[in-house]
Write a protein that binds this DNA or RNA. Structure first.
Length: 444
RNA sequence: GCCGCUUUAGCUUAGAUGGUGGAGCGUGGGACUGUUAAUCCCAAGGUCGCCGGUUCGAACCCGGCAAGCGGCGCCA
């Protein structure tokens, strides 16, 4: 049952002039009454297979003639090096078995025309048929990049002695403003939500593990309809004891550069197939990411005659103007206290600011990391909660962490899908996740 | 929460000024011994998103509804 040969291996020249057995799906098929060309696809690539009536006999030939796109087959044959075949290798078929056929009355719906004007798979039809669109080239490429990104995150943190730690998805409180929480019916209770962040629970484990990370889904009930938003997204978060804002930024930069380098190491053909400029990715992997204070960003924007006042948060329209000349991601630090929630630590050098950072990706992709130092003393967290008029009850356990040996600490959250979207050059974040969830779509 | 756009065959779409709809791909049949998104010939396939209105007559004009998409705010 297990495969003995893979298309990618054959195309690499491993089996030149040898007999192989390939298992896969028909990607394209064409031919005459005497000769049939079948382009076979498996997870490693495609290869042209030639079946001649004289060689395979009438029964097999007729079977292959009637086999439509996405029919699953086992083909046995000889590997020929042949310039006429795409990839330079070709299988001369000696025998064939059809494993799973496709009914002509219901052919595979993802046709060339279905993808014609929708390279990113953004038509209603392709979104409705996402379960079938997954096996097409562009989607397969995105899923491979995605796998490399997840692997890179794990290897970065583990190589830096972080411990993987899991938080619950059902939570009874909010990290961000309450309006973006998904309520979950929970045995009749009305105060249960899907988590928006691992952070609060990570802070509870921080005194135990000191350096910890996770990759987990986060949920935000934002009705945002943009190329950057999903309601369910994958969140890579880290929390670190005895660390300041710049220590945390170093890890944020290190992580993103490591993901970019992993893409170059593992997925060069995939990036090229997407038309991505490899020099650009190399620049993201090799160069340091500059840091800019909020004040400097505001001054820069004001210098460009953008209508912004000190104290305003930088929304996407401002980020976009600011990042249009960036050639690598930039950190923005030291936002005004009034623009950020209570858990950000106030800058002891100037109480107007908090010790936080956002990492903004270039090419118009916007924010990919948000993080900073946490308010870590009991006295200060109580003052900040009261200042914001937030009820203390919801954060009892969070405050408790500070009652027993609080230490300086902090962390960040990275939008994994956003990073993949940016590095792959996707038009929309939906392109890089198999079954995207937004405010209007939860199927398939 | 706000603003905008779209909806014609399985898919992608053409249909100025209102006169019951064309094509390409796919599918079926036929031709072809080397194709590269093969090509050529033929055929089937459409209550023009739904409801109502104007009109002798609506895919087209008007109103409502629905679904989808794009963007803003907010964020990763």
């Amino acid at each position: 049952m297990v495969k003995s040969h893979w298309v990618g291996e054959v195309q690499s020249g491993m089996y030149d002039d040898q007999e192989v057995e390939l298992k896969g799906w028909i990607y394209r098929t064409r031919g005459s009454n005497k000769i049939r060309f079948i382009v076979l696809r498996d997870s490693t690539g495609t290869i042209q297979c030639v079946a001649k009536r004289d060689t395979v006999g009438d029964e097999i030939f007729e079977g292959l003639k009637g086999a439509l796109i996405e029919t699953s087959v086992i083909l046995n044959g000889h590997v020929n090096v042949d310039e006429r075949a795409p990839g330079g290798h070709e299988i001369v078929v000696s025998s064939a078995t059809i494993v799973g056929s496709v009914n002509p009355e219901n052919p595979f719906p993802i046709t060339q025309s279905a993808m014609e004007n929708a390279d990113g798979g953004e038509t209603e039809f392709l979104l409705d048929n996402r379960h079938l669109y997954l096996r097409t080239g562009r989607m397969t490429t995105m899923l491979k990049l995605r796998s490399s990104a997840f692997g890179a995150i794990h290897s970065y943190f583990r190589d830096s002695d972080f411990i993987e730690y899991q938080a619950p998805c059902f939570v009874a409180g909010a990290v961000e403003g309450g309006s973006t929480l998904f309520e979950v019916p929970y045995f009749g209770r009305k105060d249960v939500y899907l988590t928006q962040s691992w952070q609060l629970y990570a802070e509870a484990a921080m005194p135990a593990l000191e350096k910890l990370y996770t990759i987990a889904p986060s949920f935000r009930a934002e009705k945002s309809r943009t190329r950057r938003h999903l309601t369910e997204f994958w969140h890579a978060e880290m929390e670190m004891a005895w660390a300041g804002n710049s220590d945390i930024m170093e890890h944020g930069e290190g992580l993103v550069r490591h993901i970019a380098q992993t893409f170059l190491d593992e997925r060069t053909p995939e990036l090229e197939s997407l038309g991505r400029d490899l020099d650009l990715i190399a620049r993201y992997a090799d160069n340091p990411y500059p840091r800019m204070r909020y004040d400097e960003a505001v001054e820069t924007l004001q210098g460009m005659s953008v209508d912004i006042e000190w104290g305003q948060d930088l929304d996407y329209s401002k980020e976009k103007i600011l990042t249009q000349d960036f050639d690598v991601p930039h950190f923005l630090t030291h936002y005004p206290k009034v623009a950020k929630p209570f858990y950000h630590r106030v800058d002891p050098d100037d109480e107007k600011y908090v010790l936080c950072h956002d990492l903004l990706a270039p090419e118009g992709y916007g924010e990919i990391i948000g993080g900073g130092e946490r308010t870590w003393s009991e006295e200060e967290i109580l003052r900040r909660i009261d200042e914001e008029g937030t009820p203390r009850d919801a954060y009892e356990f969070y405050i408790d962490v500070r009652r027993f040996g609080g230490v300086p600490h902090g962390g960040f959250g990275l939008g994994v899908d956003r990073v993949i979207s940016w590095l792959s050059g996707a038009e929309h974040i939906r392109e890089v996740i198999p079954f995207p969830r937004d405010s209007r779509r939860v199927t398939p």
